[in-house]
Amino acid sequence: MTDDLIDRLTRDLRPVGPGVVARRLILALAIGGAVALAGMALVLGFRPDLATATASRMFWMKLAYTLGFAGLGLWCVARLGRPGLSAAGRLPWLLAPLVGVAPMVAMQLIRTPSAAWRPLVMGDSAMVCPWRILAVALPVFAALIWALRTLAPTRPRLAGAMAGLTAGGLGAAVYALHCPETGAPFLAIWYTLGILAPCALGALAGPRLLRW
């Protein structure tokens, strides 16, 4: 029985090049990101002042913050898709974007009298921001889950969470092309919540979605 199986597997052997895992994850991210961008452009539209906004520091701060999460999440996913490799050494780095944005949050709050903090913290869209980020992130999340299912995640909950975090980061970056908010505290609170939402979704659904 097992002899037959080994015969069959040997006959079925095709060469596998290095870099297949990385290529598949990048492909998933590209497809999911393209769908997210197209969906966002159709439903929400780009911010009207996009051309001038690119001159502001806050615009790039938002992109760096969100893409930071996406990159760090992907960095963990790349390990979690391979049996025998732990992502434990990489998880602490997930705090880096928060640490990076903290000085800007402190500076804006210090420069503003506390009576005028509300717009910095709440902006005009605090209540819809996390939900919209979650929605924009969903195509990316689906594509990453597809990619992970072809790999071999032995810790499906953590792998799902990291796929969600990556999708949340990229989704938030896409959403930043729509969202005109300029408060660093707004970014640190509401964008973070929006990024954590698909992360939580991945942690909940990972064990079910990532069985192999």
Binding site: L5, V21, P83, G84, L151, A152, T154, W212
Partner: peptide, 27 residues
């Protein structure tokens, strides 16, 4: 053995083989 076959692309050539096999077996 089937998982090792169908997921062989997830083996990182820079790493040791037995931890990879063992992690699959444990899963």
């Amino acid at each position: 053995l089937i998982a090792i076959h169908t997921r062989r692309e997830t083996f990182d050539r820079t790493q040791a083989l037995t931890p990879w096999v063992y992690a699959i077996a444990r899963y």
